[in-house]
Write a protein that binds this DNA or RNA. Structure first.
Length: 561
RNA sequence: CGGAACGUGGCGCAGUCCGGUAGCGUACCUGAAUGGGGUUCAGGUGGUCGCGGGUUCAAAUCCCGCCGUUCCGACCA
């Protein structure tokens, strides 16, 4: 491809609206342009990358027996009513105004619709059906370029099995395929065991990439591979050390002191000497939740510890329950169930509310003064805490979800009446799995992980072209002739070559080549051509060396293998 | 959806406070020089100043309303 004729609108400056590296570079390198918030056009160069990623996905899913479909994005709303997901998706689902259609945000219903009444026998299974298709979600806040859009390309696969044991097999096949896909793409990723969440089901794994642009926060152990969303991640935590002597309980007048900050300032003590109280209502029962002053309650863990419905108590309820306003509630003398974070286990000499407005208590010994207290893990894991698997240190950071594999079970088949007959002639709902990969996210994550101050650094697998060929002076006939023949020869040899044949300064071309980031650059200039030599630059290392023209093709092959 | 910022040629910005002929850099076009890291000179093209309304002799500038984009938060199969 000749760059003079190829639509690659590069930008020298960083567009105002782009913040994260991948977004900036996709815009600057002319891969994409925004049409509206969260809606991107892929230009030829960007689309080449998308096609390469899609092809890798296609090969690996085909390899495990997947069959590719192409499904409509426009769906009758009534199919989505069958599973009650019009309501479940709420405002995230796009609705068509002048006909009763929705734009599909995923395709469980449509795949199940096609399986229903057709896959009637256990003999018809297993099946793995997939597609690579545009999804539509009315995201409240699109962000980070293509990483979170209102319209995005997703590979979504669905498995249909006659039993949960067989579902495990289909799931394992996808697990393996996903690892191959991301390995082949050259991504550094890790796998998080996630809770089943709102999709319903029995198990799932998320394939994540570490990135500042990520929207999930995960705890990860490098040495044993343990990874979990911080919502559920466990960690080994030293509880607050019990001091040798327990002081006497003492009531302190603390006028207008409401927060832990104010209390610490007023009494000149450290947050870690205080126990923060929160009152929640769990299925009608008031419960005091106690946590170290400088920490926050993890709502997911709290709900898991208590079970049932959990909501914060209203201010009027607080007074009735504890006898004090919000700022003065504490465990001593609290009449209802009390649970505390593990970090507070058996702690003493604590400060907390007195259950009497404008009073606090010092010298609280949870062992002595709070009989019946129960301990749970109620806080989020933090960097540096111990891994529960191997004892090494956990790291907590943000990450982007690239893919998600999911044991659905019978949620959709049961709701939609997609049943089959087993060996005994009994009807059962089909046991399903669903498996997604964000295709543009693969590209964005690769760029997040592989760029420098000059631009993108593609590997040969995802690079839109293998080689960027640069002719330095298009006014010199011998340079043009040499570049032209190298261009043709490289193409004959099966390489994808982007030939910069523009009338431009050398520096301009070098910088554009570094921005676009093809793995190899071949530079043809007048001086070296006189010695029958051309220069090769390896984008990743910055290494450059000269080679004789006739050795060029061998050298290129070596470097691109 | 709550909070904040921004909106002026393709891109990056100044001008807005204090109303008075729409500017700069870059990109683009023409010509010339240059030709190994965004070179130089000369001459050009291109803008409903986000949209609508109001105030005024006069609005990019002041007032009101709306729209768009981004960031933080909420939300997120």
């Amino acid at each position: 491809m000749k760059l003079s004729k190829y639509f690659v609108p590069t930008l020298k400056e960083v567009p105002n609206d782009a913040v994260v590296a991948s977004h900036v570079l996709m815009l600057r390198s002319g891969m994409v342009r925004m049409l509206s918030a969260g809606i991107y056009s892929f230009l030829p160069l960007g689309y080449k990358v998308i096609k390469k990623i899609s092809e890798i996905i296609r090969e690996e899913i085909d390899y495990i027996g997947g069959q590719e479909f192409h499904l409509p994005a426009l769906n009758p709303r009534e199919i989505w009513e069958e599973t009650n997901r019009v309501e479940a998706f709420g405002d995230t689902l796009f609705h068509i105004k002048n006909r009763d259609y929705v734009l599909a945000p995923t395709h469980e219903e449509i795949m199940t619709y096609h399986a229903r009444n057709v896959m009637k026998s256990y003999k018809d299974m297993p099946q793995i059906w997939y597609q690579i298709q545009t999804k539509f979600r009315n995201e409240a806040r699109p962000r980070s370029g293509v990483i979170r859009g209102r319209q995005f390309l997703m590979k979504d696969a669905y498995s249909f099995d006659s039993s949960y044991e067989n579902l495990d097999k289909s799931y394992a096949l996808h697990d393996e395929a996903y690892r191959k896909i991301f390995d082949r793409c050259g991504l550094k990723y890790f796998v998080v065991g996630a809770s089943s969440g709102a999709m319903g089901g029995t198990g799932s794994e998320e394939f994540m990439v570490r990135s500042e642009a990520g929207e999930d926060t995960v705890a990860y152990c490098e040495s044993c591979g343990y990874a979990a969303n911080v919502e559920v991640a466990a960690s080994v935590v030293d509880s607050k050390k019990r001091e040798e002597v327990s002081e006497e309980i003492k009531e302190i007048h603390t006028p207008n002191i409401k927060s832990i900050d104010e209390l610490c300032g007023f009494l000149k003590i450290d947050e870690t000497q205080t126990a923060k109280s929160r009152v929640v209502i769990n299925d009608g029962e008031p419960i005091l939740v106690l946590i170290l002053g400088n920490e926050e309650v993890n709502e997911t863990k709290l709900e898991k510890a208590l079970g049932g419905n959990v909501r914060p108590a209203h201010p009027e309820e607080l007074v009735k329950i504890s006898g004090a306003d919000a700022g003065s509630i504490g465990p001593v003398g609290f009449k209802h169930r009390i649970i505390a974070d593990l970090k507070l286990k058996d702690a003493n000499n604590l400060y907390s509310g007195a259950n009497k407005t404008d009073y606090h208590i010092s010298g609280i010994d949870l062992m002595r003064d709070v009989p019946g207290i129960e301990y749970f893990d109620l806080r989020s894991a933090q960097s540096g805490e111990g891994c529960t698997g191997c004892g090494s240190k956990l790291e907590v950071f943000s990450a982007i979800e690239l893919g998600h594999i999911f044991k659905l079970g019978t949620k959709y088949s049961a709701a939609m009446g997609a049943n089959f007959l087993d060996e005994n002639g009994e009807a059962h709902p089909i046991v399903m799995g669903s498996y997604g990969i964000g295709v543009e996210r693969v590209a964005a994550c690769f760029i997040e992980q592989n760029h420098d101050e000059k631009g993108i650094v593609w590997n040969k697998v995802l690079a839109p072209f293998d080689i960027q060929l640069i002719a330095l002076n298009m006014k010199k006939e011998d340079v043009v002739n040499a570049a032209e023949s190298v261009y043709l020869k490289l193409k004959e040899e099966g390489f994808e070559v982007l030939y910069d044949d523009r009338e431009a300064q050398a520096g301009f071309k070098f910088n554009d080549a570094d921005l676009l980031g093809m793995p190899l650059q071949i530079v043809i200039g007048e001086k070296k051509l006189k010695e029958n030599k051309v220069e090769i630059k390896v984008r990743k290392t910055g290494e450059r060396f000269d080679t004789e023209l006739e050795n060029l093709y061998i050298k290129v092959k070596e470097l691109l293998i």
